[in-house]
Write a protein that binds this DNA or RNA. Sequence first.
DNA 1: AGATTGACTTAGACAAAGTCCAGTGTAGGG
DNA 2: CCCTACACTGGACTTTGTCTAAGTCAATCT
Lengths: 138, 138
Amino acid sequence: MSDLLERLRGRGWRMTAQRRVVAEVLAGDHVHLTADEVHARAVAKLPEISRATVYNTLGELVTLGEVLEVSTDKRAKRYDPNAHRPHHHLVCAQCGSIRDVHPTGNPMADLPDSERFGFTVSDVEVTYRGVCPNCAKA
Amino acid sequence: MSDLLERLRGRGWRMTAQRRVVAEVLAGDHVHLTADEVHARAVAKLPEISRATVYNTLGELVTLGEVLEVSTDKRAKRYDPNAHRPHHHLVCAQCGSIRDVHPTGNPMADLPDSERFGFTVSDVEVTYRGVCPNCAKA
DNA sequence: AGATTGACTTAGACAAAGTCCAGTGTAGGG
DNA sequence: CCCTACACTGGACTTTGTCTAAGTCAATCT
């Protein structure tokens, strides 16, 4: 994820401590944090970082296509740094935990023209819901 | 949608003017209103209905499986009365308008066991995104 | 039909998530 | 090393949704 910072610098981003910290927090697989969780972890590394900056930075990362916004059914949007490998999500209906998954098949091809209503369709998002092993035990 | 009211009465619902109005507002195809929109339309028919009642009633309808909650990427949840015919959604990335669609194929079968991480998967939700004819013109 | 009762509704306070703005700070080019 | 445009801060504000205490009324019983 350090190459992320390189890529951003190449796009004319000014490199600040705050942005570096947000990028660090978002490193890894199966990471799907809410804005507030990102803020909490960022504060741990840089106590004076403000909520507004975290929101701004996340918004910029989404606009640049470096991070995806995921709306599972929870209240808050979640941010997924795994934007460069296409994937879908598997969500636990009880605890809300999320895994990245890679289904076979191509849902894009499954939508016939007659069902497109004149839209120019550019993207599909598939969300599987179920109960995770942990919650199943309880 | 009048049989909805019958079904609810059968489930022990007390029939009130407020609930009737909320059910009426949710009638039709391709209806995906936010809670506030439902409230606004309900107020037009029954001025003294309160926001809390609309939220309560919507929540009950969802619990009973008569209405689906749809989280597209917008801020507010939307409510879809078309719960008894399985379908997916096509969303305009610009104006947010939503159409019900029926893709071919079975996404449920496309998730191999190796990608289920021990979850008991019970549901799939597919969201297509694109630009609607109206927004494409502008 | 009238009394009863507990489920339903109301208004408004509260909470959570996110946006906006005026003022201050600082990265990076010259 | 200095400037200046861009970035950051803190707090007020908005939107969306939840909760509660008190009042109301649909359905049942007689």
